Simulated scan of single mutants.
Amino acid sequence: IEYLTSMLYSQLGITQSILDGTADETTMLNYYNRTIEPIVSAIVDEMKRKFLTKTARSQKQSIMFFRDPFKLVPVTELAEISDKLTRNEIATSNEMRQTIGWKPSKDPKADELRNKNLNQTEGEVNSGNPTMADEGTSTGESEQDRIVNELLDSLESEIEKIIGDYISDDEEEEEDS
């Protein structure tokens, strides 16, 4: 019986550490990728074939599965992962709250994809860190905003110049004809 059990486990890619919950990260990732994902994909494919009509498929209806990648992550590591994902603008605060199982925050900033440490609005800069406020001009405009505004003004004047030249060329052609 033990031999047959070990053969079944090896065929399914299951080890004793997976069964008793002591498997490391790479073992679990391998188990999900080689065992669970192919089985669930086959089930989903068959459910699509059996339960969705041609009309439903033509309307782009589908059956899908999702795996929670944070299910086995300890809380201490989850906080670090959440910080990295929000700081690098990969996920919003509300998206991270949902992965933890918390209700989304009603704060509109929680749905913005931005680094809270760097991408501060003008109001946050002036009310928050005094060193950040000192970097702006007297109107509270940051150096980067000032450069962008100068560039936009320059582009606008160039466009007006081109349009003016185009209109004057058209007027000359009308006078010639």
Rank of each mutant, 00 (worst) to 15 (best):
E174P: 02
I81Q: 02
N126R: 07
E141C: 06
I39D: 00
K48E: 13
G13A: 03
N126T: 00
Q120G: 00
S10I: 01
I39G: 01
I63L: 13
S157G: 04
L151Q: 02
E25N: 12
S10R: 13
Q144V: 13
E150D: 02
Q59P: 02
Y3P: 06
D24F: 01
L19G: 04
T35A: 12
P38Q: 03
W102G: 02
E141N: 10
T137K: 11
V44C: 12
G123H: 10
P104Y: 01
S41N: 09
I147D: 11
E135P: 01
E122D: 11
N33L: 13
Y166I: 15
D153G: 06
E173P: 00
K84S: 08
I81M: 03
E112M: 13
E122K: 15
T131E: 12
T53N: 08
I43S: 07
E89Q: 13
E2C: 12
K109P: 00
N88I: 02
S138W: 07
F70E: 08
L118T: 04
V73R: 05
W102E: 08
L113D: 02
E135S: 09
S58Y: 06
D170L: 07
S138H: 03
I43T: 12
N117P: 00
N88S: 14
Q59G: 13
M47E: 07
N119M: 08
L8V: 08
D169H: 07
E171G: 00
E122W: 07
R67T: 09
S138Y: 05
D20C: 02
T5P: 00
N88L: 12
G140H: 04
E122H: 10
T15H: 07
N126F: 00
E175Y: 02
L85W: 04
N119L: 05
S62G: 11
W102D: 09
F66W: 13
T35H: 09
T92P: 04
K109N: 05
E37I: 10
E143P: 00
T22D: 12
K161P: 01
E124R: 06
M28R: 09
M132T: 00
D107N: 14
T5H: 06
Q16L: 14
S157D: 10
V148M: 09
V73F: 07
S168H: 09
G21Y: 05
D24N: 15
E124Y: 03
Q16I: 12
S138L: 08
P38H: 05
Q144M: 11
T86W: 00
A56D: 14
A91N: 08
I100C: 06
R97K: 11
K71C: 09
E112V: 12
P130C: 07
W102Y: 13
K84H: 03
T76R: 15
P104G: 04
T26S: 14
G140Y: 02
R57L: 15
N30D: 05
D45H: 08
E95K: 02
L118V: 09
E77A: 11
L85C: 05
E156G: 11
R34Q: 06
M7I: 11
S58T: 10
D170Y: 01
T55W: 00
E46W: 05
L12H: 06
Y3M: 13
E141S: 09
K106Q: 14
D169F: 05
K60D: 15
D20G: 01
A79W: 06
L4C: 07
Y31K: 08
L113I: 03
I18W: 01
R34H: 04
A133H: 07
V75K: 15
E175L: 07
R67K: 12
E160G: 03
Q144K: 14
N88D: 12
E143V: 11
